[in-house]
Amino acid sequence: MIALKNAWRRNAVAYMFLTPWIVGLIGLSAIPMVASLYFSFTNYDMFTDPQWVGLANYAQMFQDQKWLNSVEVTFKYVFISVPLQLTFALCVALALSKGLKGLRFYRAIYYVPSLFGGSVAVALLWRQLFGGDGLVNRGLAVFGIEGTNWISQPDTALYTLIILAVWQFGAPMIIFLAGLKQIPIELYEAAKIDGAGKFKQFFKITLPLLTPIVLFNLVMQVISAFQAFTPAFIISGGSGGPLDSTLFYTLYLYQKAFTQFQMGYASAMAWLLLAAIAILTALIFLSSKKWVHYQE
């Protein structure tokens, strides 16, 4: 009886804390999500009423060459850019958490690229850097290497976008920094007394205690990389060119929805993407039991 009462109380307190989120979930997030799920089974051109077509949209996808191509492009992008970006962010975070003079200043500088977001200026800039007579090629010319049109060659265009993603590494870096700061100093002091070196400290203290944050960054970067849209949109002007080599999944989805008015098809694409991300995220979480350490 008392146990039951306690359980009820425990739930009540927890749900009280969750109230805003639940209200938002039901009132704001759920309705559009369910609506889009419904659209995914229909032919919906946005202006007239949707017509039920069952699984036709889903079936059509697997015969759509452009869709298959966008899947390939996106997977490539996710599996290359996420590890690169996270490693880079962690290295910089480690370097910048040390006792150098003027650290605040450096940290601010390193965050600048991430402040730009998807500004038009970035597109202009990228052309300046990676275009035919861009800075990169001028730099290579010093070493006698002749570069190409990095942005506009189908073989290299995607990699310029990956570089862009790595360049905007500020968000995971800040989160790593915050995580590093939460590691109690006492642990290091104790380790030092035990005679542990820097290397050992990193692998025995820093990295294990940082794993919850690594998990967070990994999951969030995977989720957002799968949905990457802005970089390809601004740099290819929304086309996904050259030859669809930067046609990200969500860029194609956007074209389907807003240029070709096939919102039903776009919604089906979105839900398939959701399923893919969900599976991958679940796998990461499952594996996390092996490598993430909480202080509980």
């Binding site: 052309r127 275009g131 190409t148 049109n149 506009s152 060659q153 290819s236 060119g241 050259p242 030859l243």
Partner: peptide, 11 residues
């Protein structure tokens, strides 16, 4: 093609 693409979205 590459040159065309480079200028595709140029203002």
């Amino acid at each position: 093609g590459a040159t065309t693409t480079e200028y595709d979205s140029a203002p």
